[in-house]
């Protein structure tokens, strides 16, 4: 299981600070997140999805991943 944390608008969309997920790849995680949290559908493609700190390809395995962070970009100043 991988710990997934949500920030800012992703937190609002899921209603969760974090949860544990069992998907085995980043691509499967993305699909699973949108299925379980429809509010993420519009923003997930913009979000940084960091696997133990790194952006990775959808094919990347989550087998050894401890932490996934989902952070939307914003640009206000």
């Amino acid at each position: 299981m991988t710990r997934v944390r949500y920030f800012a608008a992703a937190l609002e969309a899921t209603g969760l600070d974090e949860e544990r997920r069992g998907e085995q790849t980043v691509g499967a995680l993305r699909a699973g997140l949108v299925a379980d949290h429809p509010g993420l559908a519009g923003i997930l493609s913009q979000c940084a999805v960091l696997v133990d700190g790194s952006r990775v390809d959808d094919a990347a395995s989550l087998a050894d991943a401890e932490l996934v962070d989902v952070l939307p970009p914003f640009a206000g100043g």
């Binding site: 133990d52 990775v56 390809d57 952070l71």
Partner: peptide, 11 residues
């Protein structure tokens, strides 16, 4: 959050 160099390009 921790952020490290992206790995996507190497995969």
């Amino acid at each position: 959050l921790r952020v490290r160099p992206a790995r996507a390009a190497a995969l």
